[in-house]
Nucleic acid binder design. Structure first.
Lengths: 217, 217
DNA sequence: TAAGATAGCGAGCAACTACTATCTAAGTGA
DNA sequence: TCACTTAGATAGTAGTTGCTCGCTATCTTA
């Protein structure tokens, strides 16, 4: 019946205990979403994974859904941090700017956090309460992704009139890839699609603005 | 306790009754997946939607999972039929070949069947038994999509060395769009992304083969 | 026609779900 | 130190889930 956080005898304030428990819970949620899917992320599974009781969940969150939404907020922040870190890492390997921006974006999309995110997003489609909580997080994340992408892609691309649409298209490709890869992870298709995208970015797009305007009229 | 199919007094063979019941069940599954999501597609919900008992489900299928897989097989066939129908419809409006192929593909991706498909696909990620049943259907559907796309896109594109990768990219963009649209269906972003894709198809790709080879070396 | 096979129903079941109520443990501040 | 507040555990609950089983209804064929 004792709180496990103090097993080692370390005294923590109530606020610290609260923050630690919430962190354990949200990490447990991510792990459960990734390994068990949305259906399997029961309060029992979360509690077990966190090494806490179900009662502890409801101590801090009104409902399972509230915990899930809170977890999405946590990982939305982590996405941005991870994108920045990955950019720095890839840049250090000497890649060109477009490759850096695209590869980093893809890396984030392949993360455990992102997989968990997709699980909740899919469920939010038909669960009104969940969607009400998730949607603002989703919109915020989209905006932050876009702001970051503008900083990372070369100005020649970032100033194109359809730049945002391109970024969304990229995100959606990687989104689709991530989902399909769990069913059929054979061959090198995803890598080839990525290569194609990079070719498009380097060769075709810089000269496409004029053609874009022509096509629009 | 009488079989509902004979309410009207119409006499049907056992085989006809079986086929009709299975059709009612699979249609009910699609409806439930679309409106209730995977979690909500319980045997109770399916039975109610089909106007049958839960016992009737287990008369014809060993498990809920088997019914879901059978439903995916049914709708995989419907995808191809719908793609062809939509191609004919859009073609009749005078669109160019690339637009026809792309718009038809997108139309299929926005169908109720496809939404149901995504629900099962997402769940199959973590459900081993479901994935084992779903995967062959998924692979078959991919192959059929590709074969059909080769027929529909102009030869100038269909003979490109990275044609399949392009088609996969398209499918993945539409897949991503369909999922995102349920959370944020604001503005005209999806249409703009589509416009961008069509511009790429008409203007950029025909001359890209050479650049593609250059980039690879 | 009657025995056998198939179809579908509804009651029931063990296991599970999200959550509540109550209790003990840990931290707080006067 | 002690009254109070917060944290976390445990036992319990109403409702739900996928499925089984025994039954009645319908079709088939010799």
């Amino acid at each position: 019946m004792s709180a496990r956080a103090t097993d080692s005898g370390v005294r923590r304030s109530q606020a610290q205990r609260r923050a630690l428990t919430i962190e354990r819970l949200t990490n447990a949620v991510v792990h459960c979403l990734v390994t068990l899917g949305y259906s399997g992320t029961t309060t029992a599974a979360i509690a077990q994974q966190a090494g806490l009781s179900q009662g502890a969940i409801f101590r801090h969150f009104d409902s399972r859904q509230a915990l899930l939404v809170a977890t999405m907020e946590v990982i939305a922040d982590r996405f941005i941090a991870r994108y920045r870190d990955t950019v720095a890492r890839i840049r250090a390997s000497g890649a060109d700017d477009i490759s850096v921006a695209v590869l980093a974006l893809r890396d984030v999309t392949r993360s455990h956090d992102q997989v968990a995110w997709f699980e909740v997003q899919q469920a939010a489609r038909t669960d009104d309460a969940l969607r009400a909580g998730f949607r603002p997080v989703f919109l915020r994340n989209q905006k932050e992704n876009m702001d970051l992408a503008r900083q990372l892609f070369p100005d020649t691309l970032a100033t194109l009139p359809f730049f945002e649409d391109l970024v969304h298209m990229l995100i959606q490709v990687f989104h689709g890839q991530t989902l399909d890869a769990h069913i059929d992870d054979s061959g090198q298709r995803d890598q080839r699609v990525l290569d194609t995208l990079l070719v498009l970015g380097r060769v075709a797009l810089p000269g496409l603005a004029g053609a874009w305007e022509d096509q629009r009229h």
